[in-house]
Amino acid sequence: MRKFSFNRRLVIIIVCLIVSFALMTVSVVIRNKRSTPPLIQQFGNDIVGLADRVVALPANGLSGSVSSVSELLNTYQENQQLKKQVSELAQTKVRDQTLAKENKQLNQQVKLNDSLTDYTAVSAAVITRTPSSWQNQVVINKGSSAGVQKNMPVMSGSGLIGRVAEVNKTNSKVELITDNNDSANRFAVQITTKSGATVNGVLSGYKSATGQITMNNITTKAKIHKGDKVVTSGLGGVTPKGLYVGKVAETGGDDYGLSTKLYITPATDLTDLNIVTVAVTKQ
């Protein structure tokens, strides 16, 4: 009798393991292949997201009021610095408007409707973050009903922070570029060097010890300097051209001395995300 119950337990454990592996594999495949999760999962996620807003609202409000008190302390200094920046910004903005207008007119002349740089920004609030050390993921409060689609790039402040990994009706999951899994941070980027040469490449990973994004396999002869700006190149579809990623922090050879490896300091603080912007492109 005892032997029987032991065997039954073993069978249950093995069946659980097999089912678990099967479910994991299926969900990973669905996540990689399909643009939206199955309808029932979307529905469940929407309901939980709704409940989460009720919990997240007071929690985020509390943290907001605490941080606003601490921010009040260095407001004066910040104000001085910002005033300087604003006066410079006005000039840049006017020039930017003129250029955008000119660009539009030129585009009309050559009958070019959508270029790689065109996108509409959808801003969203971060509801919550995945409590797991293996997935650097946040949940935002805009979904497919606001035009968000899978793989769209997401920005916060001045720079790129990640891409949309899963879309539900009213919320979606964003995989941050700090995530080191196989598909999280492969963005096509380009660097315009000081001499004017353009270097294309793909982001390849995140070095958590220093908080830098890495970029591998660059075989160009062009000299890349520290401080060169890295922007998305718009190649490969969904990501528009010209989203700011960060600055080159360090250049070096790779392990075999054949190509160059770059370390990029991200433009935004990736641990402090409240409002993010999804770059929605026409497809």
Binding site: D52, V55, A59, N60, S63, R129, P131, S133, V138
Partner: peptide
């Protein structure tokens, strides 16, 4: 849901890479 909210609010303390 509090798990997620805590991770979000204290993300600079809790997800201080490489320590998580």
């Amino acid at each position: 849901l509090l798990d997620g909210s805590l991770s979000h609010i204290f993300s600079s303390q809790m997800f201080n890479y490489p320590t998580v």
